[in-house]
Simulated scan of single mutants.
Amino acid sequence: MEKISVFLDDYRKAPDGYVLAETIDECMELLRNFDIEHLSLDHDLLNRTRNGLMLVQKMIKENLFAKRITIHSANSVGGKAMYHCLKQAQQDLIMSPAIIVSLRPLPLNFFPSKVLQHYLEIR
């Protein structure tokens, strides 16, 4: 299975080397069909009811995960809810404890070089 990294966001552009998914349906399709090295997730998407938390819940239900997951949402409440949901799945042994889960909010309009380093180091 081909390995890729995925960036879920409907506003920001994906960093170099990442496949952009703009909806949770696109992201789920990629999770089902590729070996995902790194999955970076936003909470707020155009469809308010189909957001990043809903994606995380679907990932847990279908047992579809990446080797590394970063929550990059600038929405602190939504991002923390996604993070805690994934960490709970690890505690419940639904998701492997070996999967690295990070909470690293990104600004909406630019990527500071220090933050981009996180994406460059994990490839």
Rank of each mutant, 00 (worst) to 15 (best):
Leu106Val: 00
Cys85Gln: 06
Arg68Glu: 15
His84Pro: 03
Arg123Asn: 10
Tyr18Trp: 01
Asn63Glu: 03
Gly52Thr: 11
Leu55Ala: 07
Ile94Cys: 12
Asp44Trp: 03
Phe7His: 04
Lys13Ala: 03
Ile4Gly: 04
Asp44Asn: 02
Glu22Gly: 04
Ala14Glu: 04
Asn75Gln: 05
Ile36Pro: 01
Val56Glu: 08
Ser96Val: 04
Gly78Gln: 11
Glu62Lys: 10
Val6Ala: 06
Leu31Thr: 10
Ala21Lys: 02
Met28Arg: 08
His72Lys: 00
Pro107Leu: 00
Val115Tyr: 02
Ala98Arg: 10
Lys80Pro: 03
Met28Trp: 04
Cys85Val: 07
Pro107Phe: 00
Arg104Gly: 02
Ser73Arg: 10
Leu31Ile: 10
Asn75Thr: 00
Leu64Lys: 14
Ile99Thr: 14
Phe34Ser: 09
Met54Trp: 09
Thr23Val: 04
Ala81Leu: 15
Met82Asp: 01
Asn109Cys: 13
Lys80Met: 15
Asp16Leu: 02
Ile71Thr: 01
Lys87Gln: 14
Glu2Trp: 02
Arg48Glu: 13
Asp25His: 00
Pro97Phe: 08
Ile94Asn: 07
Ile60Arg: 14
Gly78Arg: 11
His118Leu: 15
Pro97Lys: 14
Ala21Glu: 04
Ser5Gln: 01
Met54Glu: 14
Ala74Glu: 10
Glu22Ile: 10
Leu39Phe: 15
Arg32Tyr: 10
Arg68Pro: 05
Lys3Pro: 05
Thr70Val: 05
Lys80Ser: 12
Leu20Ala: 13
Pro112Tyr: 00
Ser102Phe: 00
Met54Ile: 15
Leu86Cys: 09
Pro105Ser: 06
Leu8Pro: 01
Ile4Glu: 00
Leu20Phe: 05
Gly52Leu: 08
Lys3Met: 02
Val101Ser: 08
Asp16Pro: 00
Phe34Gln: 06
Leu64Cys: 09
Asn51Tyr: 10
Leu30Tyr: 12
Lys61Val: 04
Ala89Asn: 14
Leu64Thr: 09
Pro112Gly: 07
